[in-house]
């Protein structure tokens, strides 16, 4: 009885995992790439986060907002510019310097006029466009999505971002790519309508309005890391993953303590249970 139950439970859990496979909508399975933050003991690599922030700031931020991020987040524990000497991220000099590079709109407290002032660590990341219509107008009608939670908003987020950025390729012969569009095998979509080749060999992926944003050597890394396309893609994917879930490291650390405690607790209760029931026929 119990064995059947366990078998059923395993079957049931296997089914829970199954729907994930079909969610991609015709895109190729993501590339295999490993990150330092994966696994139950994963940690963010601070140097990688700094490089990733640089890629975001110099390349992506031209079109993609990160509205849920503030400059102070960069200085919090686990973040790219965290310094144990400054536990309060508002005091972190790197964070203040980065924030001060940007002009932020504000109201003059005496005249009520709209003015611009240097950013402080409490300010949010500046958005490249004031609103959606402006964003679409500058990007041929396409809306560059906000990247704040992008690693959670796509299946296998970090790998997806890496695959998408490194996955641009020449469209195969027989695929008609529209004006302002680019073919990417990792982009969700269905290219059947634009495919004139054999019906059972439709290329995977879809059309994306974003031109390949990265090229080798585009962003120079201050720590001397070689700036290949793969490296930049990997670093920005790690940065976006951190931005999507800054508390990931804390979560896993808490989890280690919780699981240990629960396992010991279960052991104690098991022994207690056996002792209590020892003399009862059941």
């Amino acid at each position: 009885m119990l064995r059947k139950g366990i078998a059923l439970a395993a079957f049931g859990l296997a089914i829970l995992a199954a729907p994930a496979a079909l969610a991609a909508g015709g895109a190729a399975p993501v590339k295999h790439v490993e990150f330092s933050f994966e696994g139950p003991f994963g940690k963010f690599d601070q140097a990688q986060l700094q490089r990733g922030y640089k890629v975001y700031r110099e390349v992506c931020a031209a079109c993609h907002s990160m509205n849920l991020m503030s400059f102070r987040n960069l200085g919090q524990k686990g973040g790219p510019f965290f310094d144990p000497k400054y536990p309060n991220p508002n005091d972190n000099p790197y964070v203040k310097a980065i924030a001060a590079e940007y002009q932020v709109k504000d109201i003059d407290s005496e005249t009520g006029d709209v003015i611009e002032r240097p950013g402080t660590s409490a300010d949010r990341f500046p958005a490249p466009f004031p609103n959606e219509p402006a964003a679409r107008a500058s990007n041929g009608g396409a809306m560059p999505p906000d990247l704040s939670v992008m690693a959670k908003a796509r299946h296998h987020g970090p790998q997806y971002i890496y695959s998408l950025l490194t996955g641009y390729q020449e469209p195969p012969a027989g695929l008609k790519v529209g004006v302002g569009q680019h073919y990417n095998p990792f982009m969700a979509g269905d290219v059947t309508a634009a495919w004139s080749g054999p019906h059972d060999k439709v290329p995977p992926g879809g059309f994306i309005a974003m031109a390949p944003p990265l090229a080798a050597g585009q962003v120079t890394f201050d720590d001397g890391t070689k700036s290949t396309l793969e490296q930049q893609a990997k670093d920005v994917a790690a940065f976006i993953t951190w931005a999507s879930e800054p508390k990931m490291q804390e979560r896993k650390a808490f989890g280690m303590a919780a699981m240990t405690y629960l396992l010991i607790f279960a052991g104690l209760l098991w022994v207690s249970y056996r002792k209590i029931w020892k003399n009862v026929a059941h």
């Binding site: 995992a17 908003a153 699981m259």
Partner: peptide, 27 residues
């Protein structure tokens, strides 16, 4: 005892795979 074993399963999801049972599109 059964509750604690159940909590171990619960904790595995919460701490190590918190978005497994949801859908990425909801982000």
């Amino acid at each position: 005892f059964a509750i604690v074993v159940f909590m171990i399963m619960f904790a595995t999801f919460v701490f190590y795979n918190p978005n497994a049972l949801g859908h990425a599109d909801n982000y």
